[in-house]
């Protein structure tokens, strides 16, 4: 214990840290500078600096779009918990080849681009698709679900479900089987054991998975664009339009920074919550 082994040196970190500095820190810094110029279509990135582009976010359709995006992200997070928890429980109980097979099923969608999976949902939910045919078989009019918030929610849930399942399964795996056996042998029912022992111990997994899913669905572009059409506008689609169609870079930069702020606040909240809950679970 006493001897501190000399590491290979912080120099080894240099390439990776240089990339983060040049390709993440500098760009975010330049976004801050861009946001300080006067907003407007074909805005010149020069002249007086002000906070007018941030004020522009509180006008027009943007507040409603932001609220919808946050609502969709919260609903997506909740849906991935409801659908992901049972899969994670069964996964963490499975052994051997059966476990490998289930893991493969859960992971396999991650091998596909989000664009491909969103395109798949347009096939399933479109009026020519599986759902349309199903409705027709029931004697109902052939209708599609495309370009609704429900369609966006379903596809977002699918695209983030694997991450939630993996995070939950990892935290369920870390629970000592002896802890569960102790609760059962002391007379707790399976339901009580789950609610009082397994669920609190899986809070770190819930928070890790939940933060990832929330931030990811907040910033998803392809899925809302392909399934929401022009009807379901979201935060990042608004940024894209500000850049590519209205050429209002200061407002786009301000909207980007606001999104970063919301994501950072939520991640910090998650970290604090996880710390407090796990401290309580271990009786500290």
């Amino acid at each position: 214990m006493g001897r501190v082994r000399r590491g290979p040196g912080p120099l080894l970190l240099l390439p990776a840290l240089a990339v983060v500095a040049l390709v993440a820190a500098v760009p975010v810094g330049l976004l801050v500078r861009t946001a300080l110029f006067a907003p407007g279509a074909f805005a010149e990135l020069s002249g007086e600096t002000s906070l007018a582009s941030f004020a522009a976010l509180f006008e027009g359709p943007f507040p409603a779009v932001a609220r919808r995006t946050v609502r969709l992200a919260l609903l997506t997070t909740a849906a991935t918990v409801v659908l992901g928890y049972p899969v994670a429980v069964l996964l963490s109980r499975a052994r051997g080849g059966w476990r490998s097979f289930q893991t493969l099923l859960v992971v396999s969608p991650l091998l596909m681009s989000t664009v491909v999976r969103a395109y798949g949902w347009t096939l399933v939910l479109g009026s020519q698709g599986v759902l349309g045919g199903f409705l027709e078989n029931l004697g109902l009019p052939r209708a599609g679900l495309l370009h609704t918030e429900a369609a966006v929610l379903l596809a977002l849930t699918e695209s983030f479900l694997p991450f939630m399942i993996l995070a939950l399964a990892a935290s369920l795996d870390r629970i000592e089987p002896a802890v569960i056996e102790a609760a059962r042998s002391l007379g707790a029912s399976p339901g009580q054991t789950f609610l009082r022992v397994a669920l609190p111990l899986s809070v770190p997994g819930l928070v890790a998975g939940g933060s990832f899913v929330f931030v990811g669905s907040l910033s998803a572009y392809a899925t809302p664009a392909l399934l929401g059409g022009s009807e379901v506008r979201t935060w990042v689609r608004e940024i894209q339009e500000l850049v590519m169609i209205r050429f209002d870079w200061p407002t786009a930069a301000a909207a980007s920074l606001a999104l970063l702020l919301v994501a950072a606040l939520l991640l910090a909240l998650g970290a604090a919550l996880s710390h407090r809950r796990s401290a309580r679970a271990f009786g500290q």
């Binding site: 992901g84 049972p86 069964l90 859960v106 969608p109 596909m112 491909v116 798949g120 789950f194």
Partner: peptide, 26 residues
């Protein structure tokens, strides 16, 4: 309770695999 878990898990797998299968089939 295990039965309810299985039903929800089956629904989750359906949601996970519907879109990729539709793409491949088409």
């Amino acid at each position: 309770m295990v039965a309810a878990l299985r039903v929800l898990a089956a629904l989750a797998y359906l949601v996970l695999l519907a879109a990729p299968l539709a793409v491949i089939l088409y």
